[in-house]
Design a protein around this nucleic acid. Structure first.
Length: 622
RNA sequence: GGCCCAGUAGCUCAACGGAUAGAGCGGCUCCCUUCUAAGGAGUAGGUUGUAGGUUCAAUUCCUACCUGGGUCACCA
């Protein structure tokens, strides 16, 4: 709405000056001193005026005499002023090198700030009613869950929430490799370890889930190692074939270990506030995948050296094997059946595969192959190419066992957090709840603040820092707002205004906010809060939860500065400060106090909603 | 070697083609008799890998090169 009104206004101005009206762009000003919105139109047009072949009769003599963009900006601004500014604009300013800055009225900003915390924030037409499948996490069974999985789990969940806030219908999918050589290796290795240690399956069944899961992880590493031996490799291959054939001899061990993995993963999903609408498994698509590939030999696929391949080189990609010469479908082959199955389950407009960028080449190939098999998938499969998580130089690999286990990591963070809130007057259950919530908040935030495509170097001590730009900082700020509100004991402050925009709104104003000095911390907050819905919309369009992170962080910083400098509540009975140069104000009048409480309320709401979009629970106390 | 991604402060990261390239951590100073100090204020730290090009304007777009990572047939 803002954008349209401003464009309408300025294009009339430009027309009256005989200037072109294409390419009008308004954008949020990067800094508050540059106003709320700004336009570069004067600089864009300027080049037309300067070069004779582009001039084409734009403007009159008075315009073409202008020598620098700044003067053109001044000319446009003064003309606009004369013709009348939109209702919500307080003032405009032409400024070197040629920007036109627009400042909004405070009461308008307050109305917008309130809108930002209403239910339908962040909706955009690009997402309205769109069916979005978000496929993420995909930890394979029988292997260790590592920090890379955790990143896609966290980012996928955040994206799902952001898409949903933007108006999309979201389906959370998880695709897990529960069949194939890695499973054979893991079961092989686990059996060996069990034998060597003189244990029994029944005995292990009594272990805790993490213990069982880690045993499988160890087994996998062992299986990989044994596979290097030619003789043992043959046996493992045999086991693999048996698994594919569902040989009753091996199925009990398979079912049992598979269950261990899945149950173990479930505990993580709930700890991370994720609930999948459907788990897809390789075991349910490998047969139909094989069939689809075989049926399309000669059309999409071809025989080569005993295997069935897709020749991506025809499309500037590379060749890949879809069915091995042993007759087993590879990951690629299975995917040919997965896509139709997913589409049948939820007819998506877009399926976003949140998967590491090391698979970028792979996805290009299978997306191409899918398109050729069925044109319905054209432009509907998207690989969000996630950056890798690396630990201090080394690439993590569950094959070699060089990994950070997720549960170890979480335990360690929790431990680091303990001393921080132990001092408060909290009950034991409260402490436990807060400790867990903060642990998740800090790990999630540290993963989300970086752009999804960016590689990230993981150093436990540094990356999960607990102050500054971190989850706990946001949580702390939120808890602070709630603490103030509890003490304010005012629950129903409603802002109102007589401002009319498009005849939609008409309310009465109660607070003297038009007089707020634009350079104060209050004004800074007012000018930040209302941007929230737009940030959410952008985060959805760009698939970038990090935009929400930086916005929230900025908001929190502004609130904390405000908090430090100004009194919010009227506290009659308090002893007055005896310090002569006490920084914050001593007293606050009733109207100002109400306004500041209102701001606090809005900031709190935005943080809460923003954290929720990131999949982080907000804490009333900490 | 082909293709993909990245290179920004000592470290970890920001910045729809715009204004003085911003934060946090770490370093150095200040601020708790206070509405939550997990906080705030200040200070030091940069030729945005290199060289060209496009543009009124380039960290951002284009080209080449350098460096790092990924990937390139029977693993997932």
């Amino acid at each position: 709405m803002i954008d349209e009104e401003l464009k309408k206004g300025i294009s009339e101005v430009l027309k009256s000056l005989g200037l072109p009206t294409e390419k009008i762009i308004f954008e949020h000003s990067a800094e508050l001193t540059h106003g709320d919105y700004s336009s570069n139109i004067a600089m864009t047009i300027f080049s037309h005026i300067q070069s004779p072949h582009l001039r084409q009769g734009f403007g009159g003599q008075a315009i073409s005499d202008i020598k620098i963009p700044y003067n053109l900006a001044k000319r446009i601004a003064s003309e606009w002023q004369k013709m009348g500014l939109p209702d919500f604009v307080a003032k405009i300013e032409a400024v070197a090198p040629g920007f036109i800055n627009i400042f909004f009225k405070n009461d308008y900003l307050l109305v917008e700030a309130k809108k930002a915390v209403e239910k339908d924030f962040g909706k955009i037409k690009e997402m309205a009613g769109k069916k979005m499948m978000v496929e993420f996490a995909h930890p394979n069974t029988h292997k260790e869950l590592h920090i890379g999985h955790m990143r896609t789990l966290i980012v996928g969940e955040a994206l799902a929430r952001i898409f949903s806030a933007a108006g999309a219908e979201v389906f959370r999918a998880n695709y897990q490799g529960d069949i194939g050589p890695h499973v054979a290796k893991s079961i092989w290795g686990t059996e060996k370890i069990i034998k060597e240690r003189g244990l029994g399956w029944e005995e292990i069944e009594k272990w805790s889930l993490p213990e069982k899961a880690h045993l499988l992880g160890e087994g996998y590493v062992r299986g990989v190692k044994d596979y290097e031996d030619l003789e043992l490799a043959k046996e493992i291959d045999k086991l693999n074939r048996q698994l594919y054939k569902k040989d009753p001899q091996v199925m009990p061990a398979y079912e049992q270990t598979r269950r261990w993995s899945l149950d173990y993963y479930d505990t993580f999903y709930s700890r991370f506030y994720t609930k999948f609408d459907r788990l897809f498994f390789e075991s349910e698509v490998f047969e139909s995948g094989k069939k689809i590939v075989e049926e399309n030999v000669g059309k999409v696929f071809e025989q080569s050296e005993g295997a069935i391949i897709f020749d991506g080189e025809k499309y500037g990609l590379h060749k890949r094997v879809f069915i091995t010469k042993d007759g087993n479908p590879t990951y690629e082959g299975k995917d040919m059946a997965l896509a139709p199955l997913q589409y049948k389950t939820f007819p998506f407009d877009l399926n976003v595969h949140v998967v590491a960028n090391e698979q970028a080449g792979y996805f290009q190939v299978i997306i191409k192959a899918l398109e050729l098999l069925d044109p319905i998938f054209k432009d509907k499969e998207f690989h969000l190419s996630m950056g890798m998580v690396q630990m201090v130089g080394k690439k993590m690999s569950s094959r070699t066992g060089v990994i950070i286990k997720v549960d170890d990591l979480l335990a360690e963070i929790k431990e680091m957090l303990q001393p921080l809130f132990a001092k408060g007057e909290l009950t034991e259950p409260e402490k436990e709840k807060i400790g867990e919530a903060l642990t998740i908040a800090s790990i999630k935030y540290s993963m989300l603040r970086v752009g999804p495509k960016q590689d990230v170097i993981f150093d436990l001590q540094k990356t999960v820092s607990l102050d500054g730009d971190s989850g706990p900082y946001l949580e702390y700020t939120y808890a602070r707002t709630q603490s103030v509100l509890r003490k304010a004991k005012i629950s129903n402050i409603n802002p109102s205004t007589t401002l009319r925009i498009n005849g939609e709104r008409s309310r009465t104003i109660k607070y003297p906010i038009s007089n707020i000095n634009p350079n104060t911390e209050e004004s800074a907050l007012l000018r930040t809060i209302y941007k929230f819905p737009e940030i959410v919309a952008n985060a959805a369009k760009e698939m970038a939860p990090n935009l929400v992170c930086s916005f929230l962080y900025d908001l929190c910083q502004k609130y904390n500065t405000f908090y430090d400098k100004h009194k919010i509540l009227i506290q009659k009975s308090k002893v007055k400060s005896q310090k002569p140069n006490f920084k914050t104000e001593d007293e606050v009048d009733e109207r100002t106090s109400e306004f500041r409480i209102l701001l606090t309320q809005a900031v709190g709401e935005v943080i809460k909603k923003g954290l929720n979009l990131l999949g982080i629970e907000s804490l009333e106390k900490m």
